[in-house]
Design a binder for these strands. Sequence first.
DNA 1: TCAGGATTTTGACATATGTCAAGAGGGTCG
DNA 2: CGACCCTCTTGACATATGTCAAAATCCTGA
Lengths: 122, 122
Amino acid sequence: MIGTMPKALPVLDVSAPICCAPMASVPISDDDALHLALRLKALADPVRLKLMSILLTGDDAACTCDLAAAVDLSESTVSHHLGKLRNAGMIASERRGMNVYHRVHHDALAALGAVLNPGCCR
Amino acid sequence: MIGTMPKALPVLDVSAPICCAPMASVPISDDDALHLALRLKALADPVRLKLMSILLTGDDAACTCDLAAAVDLSESTVSHHLGKLRNAGMIASERRGMNVYHRVHHDALAALGAVLNPGCCR
DNA sequence: TCAGGATTTTGACATATGTCAAGAGGGTCG
DNA sequence: CGACCCTCTTGACATATGTCAAAATCCTGA
């Protein structure tokens, strides 16, 4: 039960596709609430939102160092944020030569929007 | 600039209607990123998602004590969570007699979904 | 006015989070 | 191979967060 969660949110792999009914259609289960919360938490940070937006609006995938420059933070910090996004299934990262390039999982973002927005058509 | 935010996220009033372009349409501004993050943070907790879902699927508004019973947490804890949701503009609370009844701001939820989901029609 | 129930606020505590510096891997190119 | 660049991991630190108990508010009804 959700009340007996005195300490930590467990660390789960939430990189699988989001799969739960819109919040308004049915009372959400404890399990779905936890998974959804972990994904929203991954997005609920100004730096990570900024990174997502840069990736979404950019022509191509961007590497870690470019992103670090764009948000003006250390590369280790940006790597940390990218790790969180990747772990939540929001982005995919791929090594090309010396750099690692990141791109958004559009489906994951759309699915998240759909769970929140009852009136959303797709 | 977003990088020079060494400490705390400022406490802002984000109860006003959400107003920013979908994340994918334009690189999000630092200001919009901050506001959006604060709203998402309000939602990014399993207990608060559960509360939202209960309110969304229930016939009527629910009072604090009913919600506390539903999620099996102390009333002070639930009051704290409801305060966060209210502060983010996700719910409205109204006193009726001895109890305080809470209901969801559907628009706020929908707007949040719309910012996330580029393909959402409204 | 006063007793009692509902709600919120305050204080305390353990845990999570965001940040950077320093170090460890991994890849490229002389 | 060896120097160097990009990335990720680790350690440390300050701050935020979720929880409850206890105290303070607010409201109703006798």
